[in-house]
Design a protein around this nucleic acid. Structure first.
Lengths: 149, 149
DNA sequence: CAGAAAGTGTGATAATATAACATAGCACGT
DNA sequence: ACGTGCTATGTTATATTATCACACTTTCTG
């Protein structure tokens, strides 16, 4: 098993996503919801074109813009994150938490851990105003670190 | 002016790169050196295909693999960094400094500041072994922050 | 010198992402 | 209900970023 997301918690995470959107008046449309499901069900970061494949079985055979638009929405809503160094995307398990996200990515098994509310870099250069930070750590998760030790 | 690199210091940075490579037995070949020059002379992060254009004037009209190979070398040598969230590259002014790199990127003017020796995240999840971290902060540099205030 | 290793040239193509414009569904005031 | 505008989606094409595979050359080494 490569992620922390059980099949049970998938549906409860989706339910929370529904509520979050309802509360804000955002529309979790079928396409968006389907993309979120695929992200949450995956064992790790997912490539955009794999989502595209994942969408094929359904009635709507999507084209790239569809997927990218859904991803944009989910990221704005805080329901997904982009893993910049992998050009891949993950569903956010702790949606609605505020503050920056810090990602820990296991290079061996692909699992990802999210940390929220990462402390603002107190040591930014003088005078800089930081809007957004990308923080990604690559290494081995505890399980994989033990095995390869 | 968008970066901190004067024309003077360009040549001295190149000289230091030469020495660094000589000291380690790495080969700073003409192509690699030319790419490094382009990176250092630029006002900010440079896209791979812009480097490709920049190489055209010279005798060797390069193809993509040439540029990517040069970039790989420079990054391994610590002479360049990739800005993951922009798919762009920067020449490293503090080459040979150890430890992780933290980048501050001004969304307004494109200038970039490097910080080296970023403290390892003491709060990594228990048991994780971190090999490499990507840390990029987006916002406004002190000059641009003042103007837009 | 012979052989191996590292670097580069070249053509093709893969992988990632967006532009531009058409269509459809829904919300809202009347 | 009706039109109006807004949001979302569909569709075609294309832009952008990156790698593969193979040939050739240069350099290093014994």
């Amino acid at each position: 098993m490569r992620n922390m997301q059980s099949s049970d918690s998938l549906s409860s995470t989706l339910a929370r996503a529904e509520k979050l959107c309802a509360r804000h008046g955002w529309k979790l449309t079928p396409v968006r919801r389907r993309v979120l499901e695929l992200l949450l069900a995956a064992d790790g970061p997912v490539k955009a074109y794999d989502l595209l494949e994942g969408l094929k079985p359904g009635p709507g055979a999507a084209k790239p813009p569809t997927v990218y638009r859904a991803l944009d929405f989910l990221m704005q809503a805080g329901l997904a994150h982009k893993v910049e160094a992998l050009n891949a995307y993950i569903g956010c398990v702790h949606a609605a938490e505020t503050g920056g996200v810090e990602l820990y990515i296991c290079a061996n098994c692909g699992s990802v851990e999210e940390r929220h509310g990462a402390p603002a870099p107190a040591k930014a250069p003088a005078g800089w105003a930081i809007d957004r930070s990308v923080v990604e750590h690559y290494g081995r998760c505890s399980a994989c670190a033990r095995l390869s030790a």
